[in-house]
Amino acid sequence: MQVLTITTPWFSRAQEICAKKKFDQVWIEIVHNDLEETFLEWVASLSPIRIGMITESLTYSSDVHEKEPTLEERKHKVERRLKYMTHALVCDEKDVGYLKTSSRVLAMWWTPAVPKRFIKRQRKLASLPYGIFIGSVYGERSKIIQNPELKELMIHQQSPEHGTPYPFFFDKMHGALYHFLKSRLPGTKLLFLFYLHFLRAIRQRCFSLWLEALQNGCAVICLPHYVKTYTGRVVEGMAAHMPVITPDIPDRPRNRALFEDGVEILLYPENDPIYLANHIRRILSDPGFSQRIVEKACRKINNFHTCEKRVQQILNWVETGEEPVYA
């Protein structure tokens, strides 16, 4: 199998990179990318199968819309882009049914996965007696972080690439790329190959640092988020050989069935910091319990939630219509 990856900065040169090429399938993220209609028309000409990757929920409650009014327009934007797709990978299980009734695309529920080669076989022997949260603070997250019950149990840690040269390399590479693309100089295909080589090296190193940072505490903590599915940090925490504590997503039974609560994962009601604090206390007080959760979660992601497995499942679904089994 041959795969051509084009990252967002190169979209303006995509037609040159893909000149005289035809593809069996095209996969494209259609939520956050800046995609003009003319670009999508060109994408539709490349392949009979176009798969739109929807990385956010499309439908939200009224209280979330009040906090984030742009979400409604984002939904309409995705719906317009779906006109150019034949299939959709949908992260929110409820949106699968919505798309089946509101559009012509074939939709599949798509869950997070992690590259198999990054799954660690053991955790650090020495770690801090805290749960570790790494991420942005918005919505209810600030209230949870400031809750007195969690003051001595959880820390908000910076992204691990801070203090390393990798953000500098990344910014300088893209700064030079911006000037190259703006100048319309020749040499697109050669520079594109060099760019991908160095981008992958930076990304892989940063991802390794990320997994190592997740091992700094006693558990990986996920805080409430808008998207109605487990975040990628859940399987990444498991890949780091750590117990994962994450909000229970209401009204999403298929998501709930991915991992067994109290056996492979620890769930808490998203607005209950006391429940979260009690989970951290149990992890700290019962190392055997913590280790059992880690071992069972690692076994689950090795069997069901690697990127290699997920790609195979998606290809099979496109060919046969058979929905993947995730648990």
Rank of each mutant, 00 (worst) to 15 (best):
Q2I: 13
Q2K: 14
I6C: 11
W10D: 07
F11N: 07
V31A: 04
L35K: 00
E36A: 12
E41D: 03
A44P: 03
S47G: 02
S57F: 10
L58N: 00
E66Y: 15
T70F: 10
E72Y: 10
K77N: 03
V78N: 01
R81L: 05
M85Q: 08
K94D: 14
L99F: 12
T101D: 12
V105C: 08
A107Y: 10
P112K: 01
I134W: 03
R141N: 10
I145D: 01
Q146A: 15
Q146N: 14
K151S: 07
Q157K: 04
D171Y: 08
G175F: 06
H179Q: 15
F180G: 03
F180M: 05
P186K: 05
T188L: 06
L190V: 08
L193H: 10
L193F: 11
L196E: 12
C206K: 07
L214D: 02
Q215M: 05
V220D: 02
V220E: 01
V220L: 02
L223N: 01
H225R: 06
H225Q: 12
K228M: 11
V234F: 08
T246L: 05
D251F: 09
R254V: 11
R256M: 14
F259R: 04
E260A: 14
E260S: 13
E264Q: 15
L267F: 13
L267I: 04
D272T: 01
I274Y: 01
L276N: 01
N278F: 01
I283T: 02
G288F: 11
R292M: 10
A297V: 11
A297H: 01
Q312A: 15
I314C: 13
N316S: 14
N316F: 11
T320P: 08
G321R: 03
